[in-house]
Structures are given as C-alpha cells and as structure tokens.
C-alpha cells in the first residue's frame, strides 16, 4: 500500500482504542452520517458501519432487530455508499464496513472495494468470508483498493490458525470474547481472562481489538487490560433504540 491506511496509523497511537459498531439505516434511514459525525466528536477511535443483511448468522437479537429495521427502512449497499460519499470532508477517524459476504458478492467484490476506496473506507469485516477463500480469490482485490480485511478469532481458534490469521492480517485482529453471538454479557469471568492472557502472550504482530459482550466501562476496561482496544455494538444500538441519535456523546462518555 502506498498511502498508509488510517487503521494502521490509529493502532500506533499510545492509547486503548474504542471502536463502535452501528447498523446503517437504523434507527432511521438517514441517520448514518449524523451518527458517524457524533461518534467522532465524542472521541471514538474507530467506527464499524454495519451493512444490514437479512440473515445475520453471527448476531444476537439486538443487531438482528436493527438489521431488520434498517432493511425495512430501505437501506442497501448502493444507498449506503451514496450516504457516505462526502464523509471524508468532515470525518477523519478510520471507518470500517462490517457485513455479511452475500450483499458484497452481489454488488461485485471489485466494484464494492472500488467504491469503498473512493469514499475513504479503510477496512472490511466480513465474518462469513473464510480465510482461505479470501486469500485465494479476493486478497489482491482488497489490497488493490487499499482495504484492510479484519479477521476474527475466538476462544476455540487453534494456535496454528491464529498464527495463520495473524500472518494474513495487516491492521488488527478482531478478538471475539467468548463462544457466542453478538450481544451484552454480564461481565467477563476467569475463562475469558485466561483467553485474553493466552492471546496476549502469543505476541502477535497485529494488535487485538476485543468484541462481543462489551457494554460498559467495566467490560471495556477488562477487555482492554491486555488488548489494544474494544468494540461495542449491541449496547450502543440499544442506546440508539432507547434515546435516539441525540445523546451519542453521553453514551461514549459513559465508557471512558
């Protein structure tokens, strides 16, 4: 890559990173740009813009529901790109699109990547695009358009596979906190702590950002004790459901 990607710059900063996920087109179709701007103003480090999908296998009830609402509102890939076309005039933190592979596949993988580059998207998270398919078929296209592909690891991922994923990554690794779909847990127990320690001791070349089950300052602090950062999704969506888009700063301030 000729220009250093915003994700790569961000992870060099000497701080714990807070990443926020939300579903594009939720709660209202045209909320996406406002939410991104408010999140940046509130001090969030990275944003994951969820492209809604009809069948989100890896998600718990909160994100499923927000996806259904967003789709009913009329959100789709082309419209999201349209909404985001001027986003880089005002927003400078890294932006990642997170979604399932089929909508991207239908759009055309190369066309989708090209559009992301034009807008200034820095990376993609596609939970159901497996490592081997990515490497065999799409890695060159992602790189051509300066996009970082972020892979997931879980407590069940073998050490050998973690190393392969670390090798294939050039931004950060999305560390799923427990064997679960997305959504808030009560807190992290001994098992998670052991897992966080184990990954930390592996001294991977990519920093890890923990996701799934992080909902407040306590879980954020636990997750980032060893890891570089943490991602909050469902808890933020619940906040949007309950309080609308006017109190985003309040939510972020409650985390750190």
């Amino acid at each position: 890559m000729t220009i250093e990607n915003r994700i790569q710059k961000k992870i060099q900063e000497d701080k714990k990173l807070l990443s926020i996920y939300f579903t594009a087109g939720y709660p209202n179709l045209n909320d996406t740009v406002k939410i991104i701007k408010d999140l940046e103003k509130s001090g969030v480090d990275l944003i994951e813009i969820g492209l809604p999908f009809s069948d989100p296998l890896a998600d718990g009830p909160t994100i499923q529901e927000s996806s259904t609402v967003a789709l009913n509102n009329g959100m789709h890939s082309e419209l999201l790109f349209e909404h985001l076309k001027d986003i880089r005039k005002t927003v400078s933190i890294p932006l990642i699109i997170m979604g399932y592979f089929n909508p991207m596949f239908q759009y055309g993988v190369e066309a989708f990547c090209k559009k992301c580059q034009e807008i200034g998207i820095d990376g993609l998270i596609l939970p159901d695009l497996p490592l081997d398919v990515y490497q065999n078929e799409y890695e060159l296209v992602f790189k051509k358009y300066g996009l970082i592909n972020v892979f997931l690891i879980t407590p069940q991922t073998s050490e050998e596979r973690i190393l392969a994923i670390d090798n294939a990554s050039d931004g950060f690794i999305y560390m799923v906190s427990s064997a679960s779909t997305t959504g808030a847990k009560k807190g992290f127990g001994k098992e998670q702590k052991a897992y966080f320690d184990r990954i930390s001791e592996m001294q991977l070349k990519n920093p890890q950002i923990v996701g799934f089950g992080i909902s407040n300052s306590q879980t954020f602090d636990q997750a980032t004790e060893k890891a570089k950062g943490a991602i909050i999704g469902s808890a933020f969506i619940k906040h949007l459901t309950q309080k609308g888009t006017e109190k985003i700063a309040e939510f972020v301030a409650g985390i750190r």
């Binding site: 999908f53 009809s54 069948d55 296998l57 789709l71 789709h76 890939s77 082309e78 399932y100 592979f101 089929n102 909508p103 991207m104 596949f105 239908q106 759009y107 159901d128």
Partner: peptide, 19 residues
Amino acid sequence: VGIIHGSKTLLMQTEDGQI
C-alpha cells in the same frame, strides 16, 4: 449464485443480496 447458511449455491435473493 450467492451464500446461504454457509454454502455458495443458487438462492433466491434481491438484487442487493438479501435472501
């Protein structure tokens, strides 16, 4: 052609890839 339930196959979907 698309992805449903972990398999690449033929499936009924919208132009945008929603099943």
